[in-house]
């Protein structure tokens, strides 16, 4: 059974002017441990789709199932990472990363220790008692990753989490996130504008059309690239041809 089933989802945004169709008959199955990227022009409803999967908004029509169950009963199996870290400036790093545990009632000495261990494992040492404004952008985004992983979600939703970082930090974090997710066998959905990032990190890439958002095509990344870390994948000979192919595909979407 797929871990995530998106079944004929339609969503309309209603404003004072009109009702606008954001997502049109979207169906998709995601297997456990898969890494999926959503690529497409801005305004294609990628973020809307993530919000629906996260249970933050209810689709106007259609269903989203996680392990065959309706999502509103499963909210705690989802982790959501935003474009900026949104660490709470008035909380220490430790208070920030354990926030989810406290809110979901999973906080205990054991889970706290696990979370702090994860924090140290991804290279954030001696920062437990620091405040977010004392950390660099890359460190903050890593802390945000730990906060998301702390509650042990089955599916991670990544909404352009690297786009606000400088290029070097972005490449490093791509590797780190990719390795961490593989290690814990997490399923992930990544929204991005960056074709290279989508190829380097994903197993499959979903190409969207804009207004209304529909699936144009699903590209499966070849095994040769999937075996590599994102950084290695970018150097791989198979990377460029796939990039060209997706580039052309997106061009044709924009023209129609």
């Amino acid at each position: 059974m797929p871990i995530l089933t998106i079944d004929q989802v339609m969503h309309a945004y209603v404003t004072n002017q009109s009702a606008v169709l954001a997502l049109d008959h979207l169906s998709l199955n995601v297997e456990r441990g898969e890494f999926l990227s959503f690529l497409g022009p801005s305004g294609c409803g990628k973020t809307t789709l993530l919000s629906i999967v996260a249970g933050l908004i209810t689709p106007t029509k259609g269903r989203v199932l996680i392990e065959g169950k309706e999502i509103h009963t499963m909210r705690q199996t989802i982790g959501y990472m935003l474009q900026h870290d949104y660490l709470f400036p008035w909380k220490t790093i430790e208070q920030n990363v354990t926030l989810g545990l406290k809110l979901t009632g999973k906080y205990s000495e054991k889970t706290k220790r696990q979370t702090l261990a994860l924090l140290h494992q991804i290279g954030l040492r001696d920062v437990d008692d620091r405040y977010p404004n004392e950390l660099s952008g890359g460190m903050r985004q890593r802390a945000a990753l730990v906060r998301t992983l702390a509650t042990d979600p089955k599916i991670l939703l990544l909404d352009e989490p690297f786009s606000a970082l400088d290029y070097q930090t972005k490449l490093k974090l791509e590797d780190l996130v990719w390795e961490t997710l593989k290690q814990y066998r997490k399923t992930a959905l990544l929204v991005t504008h960056d074709i290279g990032e989508a190829i380097a990190m994903s197993d499959r890439i979903v190409l969207f059309t804009a207004r209304p958002g529909k699936i144009q095509k699903i590209v499966t990344v070849p095994d040769s690239l999937r075996a590599c870390t994102p950084f290695q994948a970018r150097q791989h000979p198979d990377f460029s041809p796939l990039f060209q192919m997706i580039w052309k595909e997106l061009e044709s979407i924009e023209q129609t």
Partner: peptide, 8 residues
């Protein structure tokens, strides 16, 4: 939104 994803 961060809190909502934790079901707060």
């Amino acid at each position: 939104k961060v809190l909502q994803t934790f079901g707060a």
